[in-house]
Amino acid sequence: MTEASKIEKANALAKEVFLANLGLAGKVFEQSQDLLKQTEAKLKETESKCKDAYSKRNEFFDSLVVRGEKVQSDTLSKFEESKIQLTSKIEDGKSQVVSKFKDTKAQAIAKFEELKSESNAAVEGQIKTLREGFEKVKSKVSRTADEAVAEASAS
């Protein structure tokens, strides 16, 4: 091979390498253009979704407010029902306690009256016994005094 043919081959190879690089650059440019178009399409789609969501935000917010009002209303209703049931149970319990207290009070008064009667009878019995004893002592003292007077008169 001659030197001229070597130079021609080198030039041809250099030209092919240059054209390959140029082809690569073109391919990269085309792919980047496709990617840019895809990105723009996705951006427009996302932007559209954002605008839809933004336009529906008041509707969504209002639906949440309505839902919150319903939850509050249901909760207050259940609270009132529970309050009424609890109040009823307390009143029933109170009535039972008052009734039981009145029964116990009546029993205690009856027992007190019974004990009072027994106590009065026992006290009256003791008083009777004391009076009998007192009468015995009195009669003995009277007899002794009469005997003392009789002895004094006899002397």
Score class of each variant (00 low, 15 high):
1 M>C: 10
2 T>H: 08
3 E>D: 12
3 E>G: 06
4 A>V: 07
5 S>H: 10
6 K>G: 02
8 E>L: 10
8 E>Y: 03
12 A>W: 00
15 K>L: 12
16 E>I: 03
16 E>P: 01
19 L>E: 11
20 A>N: 14
20 A>D: 15
20 A>I: 07
20 A>M: 15
21 N>C: 02
22 L>P: 00
23 G>M: 14
26 G>W: 02
26 G>Q: 10
27 K>R: 15
28 V>N: 11
30 E>T: 06
32 S>D: 13
32 S>G: 07
34 D>P: 03
37 K>Y: 07
37 K>S: 12
40 E>W: 05
43 L>T: 05
43 L>K: 10
45 E>F: 12
48 S>K: 15
53 A>H: 10
55 S>A: 15
55 S>T: 08
56 K>L: 01
58 N>C: 01
59 E>K: 04
60 F>Q: 07
60 F>G: 02
68 G>E: 04
70 K>W: 03
71 V>K: 09
72 Q>L: 14
77 S>V: 14
79 F>H: 15
80 E>K: 10
81 E>W: 00
81 E>H: 06
82 S>R: 11
84 I>C: 06
89 K>Q: 11
89 K>F: 05
89 K>N: 11
89 K>I: 11
90 I>T: 04
90 I>H: 06
92 D>P: 00
92 D>T: 14
93 G>H: 02
97 V>K: 14
103 D>Q: 11
104 T>M: 12
105 K>M: 12
105 K>R: 12
105 K>D: 09
106 A>W: 07
107 Q>P: 01
109 I>H: 04
110 A>W: 09
110 A>T: 08
111 K>H: 09
114 E>I: 04
115 L>G: 08
118 E>L: 10
119 S>L: 13
120 N>K: 15
122 A>C: 03
127 I>P: 01
127 I>W: 00
129 T>W: 00
129 T>R: 00
130 L>E: 02
130 L>F: 00
131 R>H: 03
131 R>E: 04
135 E>A: 12
135 E>P: 00
136 K>G: 06
136 K>N: 06
138 K>A: 00
139 S>H: 11
140 K>I: 14
141 V>L: 12
141 V>T: 06
143 R>M: 08
152 A>C: 10
